[in-house]
Simulated scan of single mutants.
Amino acid sequence: MKRLITLLSVGIIGIYISSAQAALPKTTFMQSSQDENSGDDSDDGDEYTEGDISFDLGMNLPGDQYIKIALGLCLPLNFPDFESTIKGDSQLKLGGIGSLGYHYFLTSKMAIGFDVSFGFNVSIGSHVFNYVPFIAAFTYQPVAGRFEFPLTIGLGFAWESFGGKNYFPGLVVKPEAGAMFRLTESWSLGLEASYLLMPQFSSWYNDNAENFAGQFLTFSVTARYHF
């Protein structure tokens, strides 16, 4: 009798476990495969695999965003003229510049954003020219596989300081071009070059002062975090 009760109990427990497993929802992981994409004629990017998930790199969608961090060199071009830069006797020496920015894609290739930079150059008299540009930027970015080529035009204002004197607000115009490589879904790394124009309209404030448009060429190593 006890054996019969034991067998019945084991059978009931087995039926209950089987029913519970059948009732539980199953998790399906969506993963793109080569067969599924064989009919897709898009060549926007490569496929990057991380664990069981595949990412389509090289394609940005409206609403995508990224944070940009850049560090580089800043070459003065006209202090007082371009010839002095070539000869190596410019009044301002090679300096440095760093930038931090946020950008938002309006379409798959066009983005708007905002960058804040800090730059410095040392003069031949060991004085430091400091400048902090605040720039609103528009970017058009063609893509080829994992390579991204941002072309940016920026416009804004800057705080400038030299020899204990400050100039604010100063106009800033900054066209920029770069080449980025998408390392993962979230990170890209590359190089950027820009032309930085910072005119000072000093005669507006002092009749004895002269207007001057500082021109710089920058080269930066850039990292972008995409989200």
Rank of each mutant, 00 (worst) to 15 (best):
residue 1 M to Q: 11
residue 1 M to K: 14
residue 4 L to Q: 12
residue 5 I to C: 15
residue 7 L to N: 15
residue 9 S to G: 13
residue 10 V to Q: 08
residue 11 G to W: 07
residue 13 I to V: 14
residue 15 I to D: 04
residue 16 Y to H: 09
residue 17 I to V: 15
residue 18 S to A: 14
residue 19 S to R: 11
residue 19 S to K: 12
residue 20 A to S: 13
residue 21 Q to H: 07
residue 21 Q to Y: 14
residue 23 A to C: 07
residue 24 L to H: 10
residue 27 T to E: 12
residue 27 T to Y: 11
residue 28 T to F: 15
residue 32 S to W: 12
residue 34 Q to P: 00
residue 36 E to C: 10
residue 40 D to P: 02
residue 41 D to M: 10
residue 41 D to A: 13
residue 43 D to P: 03
residue 43 D to G: 14
residue 44 D to G: 05
residue 47 E to C: 15
residue 49 T to P: 05
residue 50 E to C: 12
residue 52 D to L: 04
residue 52 D to R: 00
residue 53 I to V: 08
residue 54 S to Y: 01
residue 56 D to T: 14
residue 56 D to W: 09
residue 59 M to G: 04
residue 59 M to A: 10
residue 60 N to Q: 12
residue 64 D to H: 09
residue 64 D to P: 10
residue 66 Y to Q: 01
residue 69 I to V: 14
residue 72 G to I: 03
residue 73 L to M: 08
residue 74 C to H: 09
residue 75 L to D: 09
residue 77 L to C: 08
residue 77 L to Q: 10
residue 78 N to V: 02
residue 78 N to C: 04
residue 83 E to N: 13
residue 88 G to L: 08
residue 89 D to H: 09
residue 91 Q to T: 04
residue 93 K to P: 02
residue 100 L to Y: 03
residue 105 F to S: 02
residue 106 L to C: 00
residue 107 T to R: 05
residue 107 T to H: 08
residue 109 K to S: 13
residue 110 M to G: 04
residue 112 I to F: 13
residue 113 G to Q: 02
residue 114 F to E: 03
residue 114 F to P: 00
residue 115 D to Y: 05
residue 115 D to F: 05
residue 117 S to K: 05
residue 117 S to A: 04
residue 123 S to T: 11
residue 123 S to H: 10
residue 123 S to Q: 08
residue 127 H to Y: 13
residue 127 H to W: 07
residue 127 H to G: 08
residue 129 F to Y: 11
residue 129 F to E: 01
residue 133 P to E: 04
residue 135 I to S: 01
residue 136 A to R: 00
residue 139 T to W: 01
residue 139 T to V: 13
residue 140 Y to H: 00
residue 143 V to N: 04
residue 143 V to Y: 06
residue 143 V to A: 12
residue 143 V to P: 00
residue 143 V to K: 07
residue 147 F to Q: 09
residue 148 E to V: 11
residue 150 P to S: 06
residue 150 P to A: 09
residue 153 I to E: 03
residue 153 I to R: 00
residue 156 G to H: 09
residue 157 F to V: 09
residue 159 W to T: 04
residue 159 W to L: 02
residue 160 E to A: 14
residue 160 E to D: 15
residue 160 E to I: 08
residue 161 S to Q: 14
residue 163 G to Y: 01
residue 164 G to D: 02
residue 169 P to T: 03
residue 171 L to F: 10
residue 172 V to F: 03
residue 174 K to N: 10
residue 175 P to G: 00
residue 177 A to I: 08
residue 177 A to Q: 01
residue 180 M to V: 01
residue 180 M to P: 01
residue 181 F to M: 05
residue 183 L to P: 06
residue 186 S to Q: 14
residue 187 W to F: 15
residue 188 S to Y: 07
residue 189 L to D: 05
residue 189 L to M: 10
residue 189 L to V: 07
residue 190 G to T: 10
residue 191 L to G: 11
residue 191 L to F: 14
residue 194 S to T: 00
residue 195 Y to S: 01
residue 196 L to R: 06
residue 196 L to Q: 10
residue 197 L to W: 12
residue 197 L to Q: 06
residue 199 P to E: 00
residue 201 F to Y: 05
residue 202 S to C: 11
residue 203 S to N: 06
residue 204 W to A: 07
residue 205 Y to N: 13
residue 210 E to A: 03
residue 212 F to Q: 05
residue 214 G to L: 10
residue 215 Q to T: 04
residue 219 F to Y: 10
residue 221 V to E: 11
residue 221 V to F: 14
residue 223 A to V: 13
residue 225 Y to M: 15
residue 226 H to M: 11
residue 227 F to K: 11
